[in-house]
Structure formats: C-alpha cells, structure tokens
Amino acid sequence: MDILGWVLIIALFVIGMAGAIFPILPAAVAVYGAFFVYGWFFGFESFNWFFWTIQTLIVVALFVSDYAVSAWGVKRFGGSRPSIIGSTIGIIIGPFVIPGIGLIIGPFLGAFIGEMISGSDVQRSAKASLGAVVGLFTSSVITVILQLVMIILFFVWIAMF
C-alpha cells in the first residue's frame, strides 16, 4: 500500500506541474490533493495547522495570480476589459479547438477578438493579443515556481516530522 500511496502522490505532483503548462489541468488542486493522499495513506499527524495554512495561502495565490497575471499582460500591452475576457475564454477553449498550439493561439485570438469588439484598430488589437501571450507565459512561470515551493515544503515537512 505504501507504493500505491507514493505512486498516487507523485502522479498528482506530475499532473500539477503539467497543469502549469496546460491550464486545462487542475494544477494547484492536484498538488494540494497529493497532501490529502499522503494523509490517507500515511497519516495526517505530520501536518499541523501551520502547514495547511501555508499551503492553502499558496493555492489561493496561485488562483489569484493565474487571472491577475494574465490580465496584467493584456492591460500592460494596452488591452481593454473585453480583450481580457476574450483572452480568458481563449485559454479555456483554445486547447480543445486546436490541440497543441491552441493553448497559445486561443488567448491570442480571444484577446484580439475582444479588442476588436471594443472598437480598437488591428494594431492595438494585435498588441493586446501579444500581451495575452506574455501574460500566459508569465503566469505559467509563476505557477511552476509556487507549485515547486509547495512540493518542496511538503517533502521538507514530512522529513522533519
């Protein structure tokens, strides 16, 4: 049973890290879920309120940063609210419509269409679209870093207790 527990934990960590690259996967939730799997297989005694508070705050920061950093990218490149909404829709739909490159094309087109709907010209719409892609990549980097912090903290915590 120990082997099964560790296989599930590692699988959830891998899914979480893959979710940093493919936003359709439940990145932070998978990493957070691995802590519960550890608890069910090996006991929750190692985790106290401080561990759960830190991990929960990181998960909240991940959710906030996913949206805020993507929106920041669009705004920083001159986009409006409709382009932020379009970019968000594109992040969700893009990978399904165009597997592989849809992750990049989706937010790009979504921001472009949103900016065009708001009455902007093609040049400004293209600039906002570039911002959506920059925001997506920046958000992915932040997600990888914060999730690595969560995973490292987990291993340090179980080694100490």
Rank of each mutant, 00 (worst) to 15 (best):
L103R: 04
A126D: 00
S118Y: 06
V156R: 11
R76I: 02
V74K: 03
T88M: 13
G131L: 03
A27P: 00
A159N: 09
I85G: 04
D66V: 00
W157N: 07
P99Y: 11
I91V: 15
G100F: 12
V156I: 14
R76W: 06
S118N: 13
V156P: 01
L130K: 09
I9F: 05
S129P: 03
S139P: 06
L109S: 07
S83P: 03
F161N: 13
Q147S: 13
F50T: 11
Y67F: 14
F63T: 00
A111Y: 05
G19Y: 07
F112C: 02
A27Y: 03
M160A: 13
I91C: 05
V14S: 07
D66N: 15
I58D: 01
V64Y: 13
M160R: 13
Q123V: 11
A27G: 14
I10D: 04
T138L: 12
L25M: 11
I85N: 04
A126C: 04
A18C: 15
R76Y: 12
I142W: 07
A34F: 10
I54C: 12
I24K: 02
E45T: 14
F108G: 03
V31A: 07
F13V: 02
F36T: 07
E115S: 12
G43Q: 10
I24Q: 08
I101P: 02
G106S: 09
I10G: 07
A11T: 15
